[in-house]
């Protein structure tokens, strides 16, 4: 996985609450057996008019936001289905960071596992980033410092789980980490569980 250090980008404003994973990537796109190419279906119901032509008013179609790597949204981003395709679709569109007021638990985990940083900010701080997004001004995200710097130089701090930060900064693969560090503990757990809860582990 590509390490995440710093990022400078104009954020894309998707300023609404409850952006669900069906909106991010509709189920019709889940028939893929690859992680790639889902950007084509991302936010389809927003990007396309009912007749299938692109809606020029949609932020994802506006040239000002082409190449944007940061998405800004409201409360409860990524709610609904557990589909990791939502994270893959955002990555395929080029996004490496989502800033919102809050995130649904499963989405936040899926984003992290794909090297996408999720930053939860209180509404006043979020409003500063949203203002920059709407004015097409770049902001700077520094993962090591856990800060977002707005276009006028205001520094906003954010909280992050130490393990996730470590993995993102170093681009680490979690399966390798678990097998390297915990293989012995897993075997010991299984041995004990066979005595303690045979119906659980015998299944």
């Amino acid at each position: 996985m590509e390490p995440f250090t710093t990022l400078v980008s104009v954020p894309t404003p998707l300023l609404r609450d409850n952006v669900d994973t069906d909106l991010i990537i509709p189920a019709a796109w889940l028939k893929t057996v690859s992680r790639k190419g889902l950007g084509a279906g991302a936010f389809e119901s927003l990007r396309k008019r009912p007749d299938g032509t692109p809606d020029p008013g949609c932020v994802f179609n506006r040239p000002q936001y082409r190449g944007s790597q940061i998405l800004v949204a409201g409360r409860n981003f990524g709610c609904g289905s557990s589909r990791e395709h939502a994270a893959w679709a955002l990555a395929d569109l080029g996004y490496r960071c989502v800033i919102a007021e809050s995130f649904a638990d499963i989405f936040a985990s899926n984003a992290f596992k794909n090297g996408i940083l999720t930053i939860a900010l209180e509404s006043a701080d979020l409003a500063r980033i949203a203002a920059d997004a709407e004015a097409v001004r770049p902001v700077r995200v520094d993962l090591a410092a856990q800060t977002v710097t707005t276009a006028d130089g205001t520094v906003v701090a954010f909280a992050l789980d130490a393990f996730r930060k470590h993995c993102l900064l170093n681009g680490l693969d979690e399966v390798s980490l678990t097998l390297e560090k915990h293989a012995g503990a897993i075997a010991a757990y299984e041995e004990a569980a066979r005595q303690r809860m045979p119906w659980a582990i015998g299944g």
Partner: peptide, 19 residues
Amino acid sequence: AFGIGTSEVEHVLATQTLL
């Protein structure tokens, strides 16, 4: 019982655990 993403599906298949 809870839903997981595909990376976690892989993690469970490989390790029978989740972090």
